[in-house]
Design a binder for these strands. Structure first.
Length: 420
DNA sequence: GTGACTGCGCATCTCC
DNA sequence: GGAGATGCGC
DNA sequence: GTCAC
């Protein structure tokens, strides 16, 4: 135990941030795979799915808590197929690497580390990479996270807030709480805004993990067109491509109004389209909302009921597509998006898009900037329209709980032989 | 063997 | 200081 | 590149 804290300090100094890869039991193999991935990424005719495959194999191997003993063992991992097996085999052959044999004590330690990582990953903002770093530094519990030196390792505001409100965020959100917050917000912002509760609430769940709000306003009309082509829709986020736009209504009006009213306890992220953070659930008094000063004081002292909340500002035109995207569940969305891509379209939260090839002369005129066509918004205004365009009957939100139907948990399930 | 592989906002880090 | 990659969440 | 078919 004492030893640990001594070991931690140099580690912190040595800039071991992110997946720098200077730790973990399979570092050498991971470095090799990262190079392979990089080579593919540099290639003129790179295959984005191949890059993704490398990324996925790197991820699954980096989550191992013990050295890979043989190439055969790696083959059993999901995401490791013939190609990566061969690379690992070559690695063992050429590096003269002889894996250590695990003694029982070491195996036991690995198990404890695994348990610790799982615990730390319960904190919002701590994923596999950060959890591994923390456990490597000796942090085994969430309680320890709140103390030096681990607290200093939590570099993002999301992680700090995740720890601070961990106890509150473990509680489920009741339907009444979601309704209270939504109504408070409706009262706090101009009546031109429309506020819809999405997420599992809209799917009829008795309790939710957070409050998902969809906010519409007639003046918010920005519908970004997808970048790239059907085979390769760019991953450049709207954050980048929107650089020059004026601050959105979310930033200029909604968030300030809620701050003034004293229900925003902490912001994890706050952009032009999306706000994520912690809300203090207000307590209605007789026929009015309680005192703003009391809420601000409560936030100051950590009293009251706190919940995770997402605010999403959505253009009217995107209403249907956004309702689908922000209602879920994940499996339903995956299924619908796959249907779209199967008929050559693209579905995101802004709309259902069709790709139009440019005629020969058009693309010649455009030069060689490979703009061989353009995206056209097909449907997005209502959920019914979007689904019908994809040949689907309307599906009630309450019937979109595919994860429950198909199996438990967010584990990948194929959504295939379902209703057409 | 063959075709499909969800998609994206925001914060932070890296690398030039 | 700007572009791109990564981590994370949903 | 991997995976399901």
């Amino acid at each position: 135990m004492l030893l640990r804290s001594r070991l931690v300090r140099p580690l912190l100094k040595a800039n071991v941030r992110y997946a720098a890869g200077t730790e973990g039991p399979n570092n050498a193999i991971l470095e090799m795979l990262k190079i392979n991935k990089e080579e593919e990424a540099q290639s003129p005719d790179k295959n984005p799915y191949k890059i993704r495959a490398f990324t996925s194999a790197i991820k699954v191997i980096s989550e191992l808590d013990h050295p890979i003993q043989s190439a055969i063992e790696a083959k059993a991992l999901k995401g490791v197929g013939p190609g990566i097996l061969r690379r690992i085999q070559d690695f063992f052959d050429t590096s003269g690497h002889t894996p250590d044999v695990l003694d029982p004590a070491a195996a036991d330690q690995l198990k404890r580390n695994r348990v610790a990582r799982a615990e730390l990953e319960q904190v919002t903002g701590i994923g596999p990479v950060k959890a591994r770093q923390l456990v490597a530094a000796g942090c085994m519990t969430i309680e320890q996270l709140k103390t030096p030196p681990y607290l200093e390792m939590l570099t993002t505001t999301q992680q700090r807030i995740g720890v601070t409100y961990f106890h509150h965020l473990g509680e489920r959100v009741s339907r009444a709480e979601a309704e209270t917050v939504a109504q408070f917000i409706r009262d706090a912002i101009p009546s031109k805004y429309e506020v819809i509760i999405g997420g599992s609430y809209r799917r009829g769940a008795a309790t939710s993990s957070d409050i998902d709000l969809i906010i519409l306003h007639p003046d918010h009309v920005h519908v970004p067109v997808p970048l790239g082509t059907p085979s390769k829709v760019s991953t450049v986020s709207a954050t980048k491509r929107n650089g020059a736009l004026p601050a959105s209504l979310l930033q200029s009006e909604v968030v300030p109004a809620l701050q003034t009213r004293g229900i925003l306890a902490a912001a994890m992220s706050s952009g032009d389209l999306k706000w994520q953070g912690i809300v203090l659930v207000p307590e209605p008094t007789d026929d009015q909302w309680g005192e703003r000063q009391r809420r601000l004081a409560a936030i100051e002292s950590g009293q009251g009921v706190y919940r995770r909340m997402d605010l999403n500002l959505v253009a009217q035109k995107s209403r249907g597509a956004a309702l689908i995207a922000l209602t879920g569940d994940t499996e339903f969305n995956r299924d619908v998006r796959i249907r779209a891509s199967k008929v050559g379209m693209h579905l995101n939260e802004y709309g259902l898009w069709r790709w139009n090839e440019n005629s020969e002369e058009n693309s010649e005129e455009e030069g060689k900037d490979d703009s061989a066509g353009f995206w056209e918004l097909v449907r997005a205004h209502t959920e019914e329209e979007v689904l019908r365009e994809l040949g689907m009957e309307y599906v009630e939100p309450v019937k979109r709980n595919f994860s429950l139907v198909l199996g438990k948990g967010p584990a990948r399930m194929k959504a295939k032989g379902k209703k057409r």
